[in-house]
Computed example of a mutant assay.
Amino acid sequence: MGFHTFDPDRAEKLERPERYRFGSREELLGALDLAPDDVVADIGSGTGFYTDEISPHVETVYAVDLQAEMHDRYRTKGAPENVEFVTAGASSLPLEDDELDAAFSTMTYHEFASEEALAELARVIRPGGRVVTLDWSKAGSGDDGPAMDERFGLGDAVDHFEEAGFTTVDGRTRIETFVHIATR
């Protein structure tokens, strides 16, 4: 299902505030419905743009990225003390069963979407825990984000997550992106 990873040589693009037009901090926080003692994972964290926004609201955030170069850039920028770096793919998370209260991915689902990754999320998310997916929509224009043939639609995400044992709580398609909220 998934396609490519983001080129670390273009990582400065991940820090641009205009990313908020595709998904705001407030929208992400509202969708996650966090508690101060929650343990959360940012799947495909990159340089930590959204990780930084979530970290003040939880006990621990795992910044999960397949590319060590992205973690290096995040460390150089400066990461909050409650961020723990995990260099791994979404299909092989070195976390305990039911360890996470929530997970989220922002503009990275198209990079890791696979049966293995969703089964792994189902393993590490506690019963009742949430996964929030904000990604580029195949219904978009293609002016921003990855190539159209690398994108999924909201319906695809709903099907993928439900096949992995999640229940869809909410989902919306917007101009270029979709947001999907699921519980285990």
Rank of each mutant, 00 (worst) to 15 (best):
E99T: 09
E115K: 09
Y50K: 02
H110A: 12
T5D: 11
T173S: 15
H160A: 15
E163R: 12
T167P: 00
L118Q: 07
E15L: 14
L121E: 15
S114M: 05
S141L: 00
L121F: 15
T87I: 13
D143C: 03
D72Y: 06
E26D: 15
G155H: 01
T173H: 10
A182W: 02
D156R: 02
G46D: 15
F166L: 00
E162S: 09
D33W: 03
K13C: 02
D38P: 08
D9L: 08
S92G: 09
L29F: 10
A164F: 06
R130E: 14
L34R: 05
P56I: 01
H110L: 07
A119Q: 15
E116R: 08
R184V: 06
E18Y: 15
E53K: 14
I175D: 11
L100S: 08
G129F: 05
D72K: 01
L34P: 12
S24R: 01
G129N: 09
E18D: 15
V86C: 00
A90L: 07
E111H: 15
V83G: 02
P94S: 14
F112S: 06
L95A: 06
N82T: 08
G140T: 10
D98Q: 03
K138R: 13
G89M: 00
I43A: 04
R151N: 09
A147M: 06
F49R: 03
A182K: 02
G140P: 01
T47N: 04
E176P: 02
L14P: 00
V158C: 06
F49P: 00
A139R: 04
D97E: 13
E15M: 07
P146R: 03
L14W: 01
V179S: 06
E120W: 05
H110G: 14
D156M: 06
V86R: 02
G128P: 10
F166P: 11
F3L: 13
I43S: 05
T167H: 13
F104Y: 15
E111F: 14
D52H: 11
V83K: 04
D101I: 08
G140E: 14
N82Q: 02
P36D: 00
L100N: 03
M148W: 07
G23I: 15
